[in-house]
């Protein structure tokens, strides 16, 4: 059975190169390859492929704009990158051979590649970056005073709400990381189990389901990050006013 922790393939000094790290590199290669291919062939008169890329980028940009308004320029790169990276990472676990090609160690299969987002370290890293970036952006946009006023107040009720806000900031990280990890990891388990029952044709509906889950989870993670950023980058009072009506 698959373990929660990723399996070590080899060691590079103190650095433990696991199968998820190898998969991360694969994901990087796919993304960077695409990016450089697009950047190199970028022309003023677009071909079909470039039009598709432009359409996607513009769609995401406009989506960010409807929510974040004046902070779009800062938030958009995080939103889009989280989406792209998580999407490719999720789908990379579905590539034939990933999770199934490996070597046997003590009678157990150790796959060479394992879906990047099915490693808790990856999702936690993403969630931490999301939270850190959100708070840094918040301080940078609305100022430290306005930022702190969200959590600390002389008014006892607001102080209590502030306390809840602080707790919710931690919950955000936990929910973001565990949601993504749980979904993708569970998906892999499901696929392994289903393939174990009958390996031909039978897993196809589950594979399709996993493709959708991968897309949805990428969207959920990136959208939530975007919304958190947009909310925290709006001054506290203004935000309260917005909620009130």
């Amino acid at each position: 059975m698959v373990t929660f922790s990723s399996e070590s393939i080899f060691h590079l000094g103190f650095f433990n190169v696991t199968n998820t790290i190898l998969n991360t590199l694969l994901v990087d290669a796919i993304i960077l390859g695409l990016v450089f291919f697009i950047a190199k062939n970028l022309s003023k008169i677009p071909n079909l492929f470039q039009s598709g890329v432009e359409l996607t980028v513009e769609w995401f940009y406009n989506l960010t704009e409807t929510i974040a308004e004046e902070n779009t320029k800062k938030i958009f790169p995080f939103f889009m990158t989280f989406f792209l990276f998580i999407l490719v990472a999720n789908w990379s676990g579905l590539i034939p051979g990933v999770g199934s090609i490996g070597f046997f160690e003590e009678g157990k299969l150790v796959p060479l590649f394992r879906g990047t987002t099915s490693d808790f370290n990856t999702t936690l890293a993403l969630a931490l970056i999301s939270a850190l970036a959100t708070h840094t952006m918040s301080i940078g946009t609305i100022g430290i005073k306005s930022y702190l006023s969200r959590y600390f107040s002389l008014n006892p009720i607001n102080l209590f709400i502030g306390l809840l806000e602080i707790i919710s900031e931690f919950t955000k990280v936990i929910s973001l990381s565990f949601r993504l990890f749980g979904n993708i990891f569970a998906g892999e388990i499901v696929l392994i189990t289903v393939s174990g029952i009958f390996a031909f044709l039978f897993p196809i509906p589950f594979l399709l389901l996993e493709i959708i889950v991968g897309l949805v989870q990428a969207l959920v993670f990136s959208m939530l990050t975007m919304v958190f950023m947009a909310v925290l980058s709006t001054p506290h009072g203004e935000h309260a006013k917005e909620v009130s009506h």
Binding site: T3, F4, S5, S6, F14, F15, N16, T18, T20, I21, T24, D28, I31, L32, V35, F36, I38, A39, V57, P77, F78, M80, T81, L84, F85, D119, F120, N121, T122, L124, A125, L126, L128, I129, F181
Partner: peptide, 26 residues
Amino acid sequence: FGFDPVLLIAQVINFLIILYVLKRFL
């Protein structure tokens, strides 16, 4: 759940690089 600080840091660095490259080149 398989938490490993080194892997975590590696993933953070990896993502930041990807973020920079995408921002700069895409």
